[in-house]
Computed example of a mutant assay.
Amino acid sequence: MYTNILISKQNSITTITINRPSKLNALNKETIEELHEAFKASDNDTSTTVIILTGSGEKAFVAGADISEFANFSVDQGGQLAAKGQQLLFDFIANLSTPVIAAINGFALGGGLELAMAAHFRIASTNAKMGLPEVSLGVIPGYGGTQRLPQLVGKGRAMEMIMTAGMIDADQALSYGLVNHVVNQAALLPLAEKLASKIINNSSIAIGSAIKAINAGYEDGVNGYLTEITEFGNCFGTEDFKEGTTAFLEKRKADFPGK
C-alpha cells in the first residue's frame, strides 16, 4: 500500500515508521503524501487511540527534506511547497485528535525535526541529534520550524539553533524541553509503548478536547481559555464523562467507550 512508510498495529497503538533507510528517511513529496494518508486513516480508525511515529534503522528519524526536489524552485513554488506541506502534514498532525508520540531514533534535522515538533510530544534515543540547518542552504525552516521551536525551547535558544544551523544532542534537547525522555536505542520504542499504554487508560474524547484546548493557546487571535471552557463543557455531554465519574464514585476502574 505504501512505498516509503511501514504501518504496524498492536492493541490500540498504531506505529508509523518512515522507511527510506538509504536516504536516511529524508522527506520527499511522496513520503509526505503517504504520511498524510497514514495519519488520516489512523485518526479515522476508532480502534487506534495512540500513534507512534519513528524512523527505520538506527541512524535517522528523518535526516531532512529531499533537497533535490526543490533546488530549482521559484519564489512562488517555494511558497507553495511550504504552504502545502504545512497543511497536508505538519499542521495536520499537530491538530490530530489522536495523540502522536514522536520516537526520535537518530538524526532529526530540518523537516525531520519539524515533523517531530508537530507531534504532541517527543522522546529520543541517546544517539539522537536535532537541528534546523536550513540557513546553511540559504533558506529558512518552512514546515513550522520557526514557530514550533520557540514555543518548545524559548525564543533565544530557537534563534541560536536556527542562526547557527547547528545540531544539539539528546541530553541538550532534554534540558531544553524539546524532548521529554532520553533512553538508549533498544528502550526507545518500549518506552513509547509504555507511555501510549498510560494514555490508553484515559478518555480518548477528553484527550482530543485537551489537544484542541492546548493548541488554541498558541494560535493568534484565539483565546485559549475560552476554548478550554467550551471543550470542558462539551465533555459533560459525552458517554466517557458519565463512565469516568460513575467509575470514580463506585471506586472502580473506568472502561471508557470513547464516545
Rank of each mutant, 00 (worst) to 15 (best):
T126I: 09
L89G: 06
P133F: 05
F236T: 14
F248A: 11
Q147I: 15
I51N: 09
E34S: 07
T246S: 13
M130I: 07
R122P: 02
F232V: 11
T146D: 05
P99L: 09
L89Q: 10
L109P: 00
K198M: 10
I229K: 11
P150E: 11
V183A: 02
A26R: 14
D45F: 02
E243H: 00
Q151R: 15
A254H: 01
F232R: 15
V182P: 06
V183C: 05
Q10D: 14
S8C: 05
T227L: 01
N184P: 08
T245S: 13
E239N: 07
V183T: 10
V179A: 03
Y225H: 02
Y176E: 12
N72C: 03
N72G: 05
I104H: 00
G64D: 08
I140M: 15
A213V: 08
N127T: 09
L115H: 08
P257I: 11
S47M: 08
K129L: 14
P21V: 10
H181C: 01
R252F: 01
T31K: 04
F121R: 09
I229R: 09
I214P: 01
A187D: 14
N202Q: 13
Y2N: 03
D240I: 08
T246E: 05
R148D: 10
G154S: 09
S56T: 06
